[in-house]
Design a protein around this nucleic acid. Structure first.
Length: 598
RNA sequence: GGGGUCGUAGUUCAGUUGGUUAGAACGCCAGCCUGUCACGUUGGAGGUCGCGGGUUCGAGCCCCGUCGGCCCCGCCA
């Protein structure tokens, strides 16, 4: 018996055809003399009918069927009787009248129901992860996996069409202490030495440019041994690309082109040229380098108006170079004390000391009323752009804290108040990221992007001075990079930069990052050598496949777009990894496992 | 490393102030049923209340510890 059709393709036009379907029993409805079976495969669901009268043997077999049995049915496609059509099913106008059933395999009773009436009442995630093969039978999850395959195909189409070469780079690389924690792999042949898995193919893709391959791309698996989040797994996939002889705008065009091509999969048309915003503007207006532009609620600066204030928390903040900013929540003057307390708890996670508020209800109330007086409260509300009925939420503190707290609060309030339209897609390219970030703990500057990112031409002098004059080291904090991110709906979907292609600038950068020429050589010597043999100007970007698919699938969890994800504690519950290895294996590698310190 | 939250039948959940025999729905098993598609209907089985300790005459409920899921902060060049 050979399958002739899938369970999703039969329509009215097939009526009269004799077909063979194969799939899983999704549901059986037994009426004694005849039985309905919902037969499921990746493509859909088809109702098949077995009658005792016309197919006694098949009907007897149908009696014994249970959920998730694998069967083949042979029969005729018939039009459903008047009034028995099912509009919820793509195949709901027909059914297959069965002559013969073949049980291809039986199945144990699943540990959880794949589809629950009323939906949403899915089994807990750890149960589903343990039986991932069953969870993956759920049509909703299958649709995500299918969408991911389409997205990757669309990406390959895009870059193929534009003359990019797909080039694979090694998974076994060398550990570099920069950046995220590496996953390391012991070498048997070189006992005591280790490979590292790529955090990204960064250096290798740049070397393909030095090699003159001109335009590179890769669907690259990346590994970072850091803690997980709803949108972060230790193992993930990037679209990685690099091109030679380009400026920033040319790279933006490819980012826009690729995402626009991919988003067509869900009938979303983004503008040919995306809006651009500098990093500093994004931080000032939204408190985030990946602002969600599907709603407003921009940050308002109240610092000027409070300059003369003798209210200690504000005065101290401003004296220390901090700022006082606010967001206005439209129509929420009726926020209760409990609600503002919750929001205060929320901003405290980001280091904010408190959340002050003004409520413009029938009366104006404020947590600052005693401290500032009524006229000042009214002035602040007005500066913030609040109107009657609105609530103003205020945070004071160091600039990074205010940005982080209010930026996150803005998203949180939008989520709570349901301010985000489901079908809206807002994209943005954030430009001119800072070259360095200050590490308060060590009082040093670290690369904000990665150590091969080119500074802005305009800031080159600032950069040189900051590096070479120890007394001017703080200038590094002002140097901007030719680095950029692509942001869709508040998710950082891609990031990249124009790279340094001159050895001198690269050496300067290593020095800025606190590396001696010797230590830089020890880590990146091969790359420094390569830079000396005629490196073309080049740049590129890397896009997170999972984050892009999360947007395509409308989910907020990365596990929904990966076939075999890990838990928040980085375990695979299905195969129970990570696991132990034999002592013999360890001996061969010269590795001894020591008990962790108590 | 830190914080929050959850853990009761195969699954999702309820379980009052600490009090008799821990319930419901779905699923499962057995029967009936000629048009269902969340089929209906009759009956039945099914519990280490995550685990360990403590308080108490008595703990699913209170306390301490621990394990696990999820979310967040730190971390993620």
């Amino acid at each position: 018996m050979e399958r002739t059709h899938t369970c999703g393709e039969l329509r009215e036009s097939h009526v009269g055809r004799h077909v063979v379907l194969m799939g899983w029993v999704a549901k059986k409805r037994d009426f004694g003399v005849f039985t309905f079976i919902d037969l499921r495969d990746r493509h859909g669901l088809t109702q098949v009918v077995v009658s005792e009268e016309t197919a006694a043997e098949a009907h007897a077999k149908a009696k014994n069927l249970r959920g998730e049995f694998v069967i083949a049915v042979k029969g005729e496609v018939v039009s459903r009787a008047e009034g028995t059509h099912n509009a919820k099913l793509a195949t709901g106008d027909i059914e297959v009248y069965v002559r013969e059933i073949l049980i291809l395999n039986d199945a144990k009773v699943p540990p959880f129901q794949l589809e629950v009436a009323g939906s949403e009442n899915l089994a807990s995630e750890d149960t589903r992860l343990k039986y991932r093969y069953l969870d993956l039978r759920r049509p909703a999850l299958q649709q995500n996996i299918i969408m991911r395959a389409k997205a990757v195909k669309a990406i390959r189409e895009y870059f193929d069409d534009r003359g990019f070469l797909e080039i694979e780079t090694p998974i076994l690389l060398k550990s570099t202490p920069e950046g995220a924690r590496d996953f390391i792999v012991p070498s048997r042949i070189h006992t005591g030495k280790f490979f590292a898995l790529p955090q990204s193919p960064q250096i290798l893709k740049q070397i393909t440019m030095i090699s003159g391959l001109d335009r590179y791309y890769q669907i690259a698996r990346c590994f970072r041994d850091e803690d997980l989040r709803a949108d972060r797994q230790p193992e993930f996939t990037q679209l990685d690309m690099e091109m030679s002889f380009v400026n920033r705008e040319q790279v933006y065009r490819e980012m826009e082109g690729m995402f626009n091509h991919v988003l067509k999969l869900i009938d979303v048309n983004l503008p040919a040229e995306w809006p651009r915003m500098t990093y500093s503007e994004a931080m000032r207006r939204y408190g985030s380098d990946k602002p969600d532009l599907r709603f407003g609620m921009e940050l308002q600066d109240l610092s000027d108006s409070l300059k003369e204030s003798d209210f200690a928390p504000f005065a101290d903040t401003l004296r220390a170079g901090g700022e006082i900013k606010a967001i206005v929540v439209k129509g929420k003057a009726h926020y209760s004390r409990k609600q503002t307390d919750e929001l205060q708890e929320f901003v405290r996670r980001y280091g904010a000391g408190a959340l002050a508020w003004i409520k413009l209800g029938d009366e104006t109330t404020s947590s600052l009323l005693k401290a500032l007086g009524e006229p000042k409260i009214a002035e602040l509300a007005s500066i913030a752009g609040a109107e009657k009925g609105d609530a103003v939420l205020i945070v004071a503190g160091k600039k990074p804290v205010v940005a982080a707290a209010l930026g996150a609060l803005r998203n949180e309030v939008a989520r709570r108040e349901d301010l985000i339209e489901r079908d809206r897609y807002e994209c943005l390219i954030v430009t001119e990221f800072p070259m360095f970030e200050h590490d308060d703990e060590t009082d040093t500057y670290v690369a904000a992007h990665h150590p091969f990112t080119s500074p802005m031409d305009e800031d080159l002098e600032l950069f040189r001075t900051g590096v070479n004059d120890p007394s001017q080291h703080h200038l590094l904090g002002q140097v901007r990079a030719k680095a950029y991110d692509a942001v869709i709906n508040g998710y950082e979907c891609a990031g990249g930069s124009i790279r340094i292609h001159q050895k001198e600038v690269q050496a300067l950068n290593f020095k800025a990052l606190g590396m001696t020429p010797e230590s830089a050589r020890a880590r990146f010597g091969f790359f420094l050598d390569a830079l000396e043999y005629g490196t073309p100007p080049h740049g590129g970007f890397a896009a997170g496949i999972e984050r892009t698919c999360m947007i395509l699938c409308g989910t907020e969890n990365i596990r929904d777009v990966m076939a075999f994800p890990k838990t928040a504690s980085a375990q695979d519950l299905m195969m129970d990894s990570p696991g132990d290895v034999d002592n013999a294996q360890l001996d061969e590698l010269g590795i001894a496992v020591i008990e962790p310190h108590p």
